[in-house]
Each structure stands twice: as C-alpha cells, then as structure tokens.
Design a protein around this nucleic acid. Structure first.
Length: 204
DNA sequence: GAATAGATTGTCT
DNA sequence: GACAATCTATTCT
C-alpha cells in the first residue's frame, strides 16, 4: 500500500483538531502475513492531565502510558479488559501526554487476512474493524506495536481526502462513565453514514 | 433494536 | 483485590 504519510507536524495541531482531521485518513499495517489497511471513520481525543478519562490524568506516568509522553506521531497501544488491544496516535510535543484513540475503520486492503484474524469467514466487511478492539485484531496490532513511528514504520498513517463537515458528527466518548463531568465532553468524532462506526447508528 | 451478562488479565492501590 | 478508553452471545421487545 502506497500513499503520502501524514507528516509529524500534523500531530502537533491541537489534539481535537487532529482527531477531527484523522477521519478519512488510512491506517496501514504491513506484516509477514500480508498488508491490511482501512479508512478511519471513528476516533476519540484524550487530553492530558486535566482529562479525567485519559490515562495521563493528573500527570500519571507509568510503564504502560510512557509512550504518551514521547514524540508525536507514534503509536500508543495498550491492553484492556483482559483480552483487547486499543491503538492511539500520540499528539503534541514530548512531555505533553495527549492522544487520539482510533475506534473504527472501513476495510480497504487485506479483507481476507482480516477475516482470518477475526475468525469471521462470513458476514459483512463493515463488521471487521468496528470498534477499537476488533480493528486491532483485524490489523494484527498488539503491544509489540507500542511506540512505533507512524510516519515511517510498518504501521503508518496515510493522508486521504478530507471528510466534509456535513458527513461527520461529534458525540460524547464511549466507555468512560467513570470520568464524571469529563465523560460528557463531545470528543468523539464519527463519519455518521458509515456502518463501521461502533455503537448505535447516529442520525445525520 | 435494546439491554444485559460473561469472558479474562494487566495495572494500580 | 478492584477494575478497565471492549466484544459477543443471548434474551428480551
């Protein structure tokens, strides 16, 4: 899969802007088993020490979230609920722990390999990367990918046509009820017409 | 279509 | 020992 990689400066824009701009871009993963790629249709922004829903809330820093404090344009991959991986894009300069969680993709390349990894021989393609855990499974993303450079590595983000504002929607983030008032912030961005978006369908 | 339960383990208190 | 930036199957309506 070829195409222009998003440059490092892309990830230095305000994190909410990066999240919105990631809609329509392409996430690619080259592995020995083959290449898989998809178009981003759902993301969430996580904003550093003041954001109670973020792993970096209160300036928390540990082996798990260390990559959030590293350079922009790198992958932060973590393991949740004892069985799923989630992939984020680190934003902002070193020392500023903000990131965008990639929550859903529309499959573009390697559908057969995605089906094999997901154990879904049948069914619609839009179910293959619907949700942050399933897209990591479909693309073969694990903690081995934590800290990878998304500008040059085998796991990377390519530019793509912008999605018009009327095709997008903003909502509260998913699965962060514990974050109190911060849970209501409209920091999730979706391409509302896409069936690959997780959760209930969103009205245009 | 919506609501709920169960799976399963790394991480932090 | 509690809980998590989740997913799927099942049981409703």
């Amino acid at each position: 899969m070829t195409g222009r990689a998003l440059p490092t400066r892309f990830y230095l824009q305000p994190t909410l802007r990066v999240a919105r701009a990631l809609l329509g871009k392409t996430l690619v993963h080259d592995t020995p088993a083959g290449t898989t790629a998809g178009r981003i249709v759902e993301v969430e922004a996580y904003r550093g020490p003041e954001d109670r829903a973020a792993h970096s809330y209160g300036g928390h820093r540990s082996a798990r979230n260390e990559v959030m404090y590293g350079p922009p344009g790198h992958a932060y991959v973590y393991f949740v609920y004892g069985m799923h991986h989630c992939v984020n894009v680190v934003c902002q300069a070193r020392g500023v722990p903000e990131a965008v969680l990639i929550r859903a993709l529309e499959p573009l390349v390697g559908e057969a390999l995605m089906r094999q990894r997901r154990g879904l021989a049948d069914g619609p393609a839009w179910r293959l990367c619907r949700g942050p855990g399933t897209l990591c499974q479909a693309l073969g993303i694990t903690r081995a990918e934590n800290g990878r450079d998304l500008v040059r590595g085998s796991l990377r983000l390519l530019d793509g046509p912008p999605v018009p504002a009327r095709a997008t929607a903003r909502t509260a983030r998913i699965g962060v009820a514990y974050a109190g008032a911060h849970a209501a912030r409209p920091w999730r961005f979706v391409v509302h017409a896409s069936r690959a978006v997780s959760g209930p369908r969103i009205r245009p």
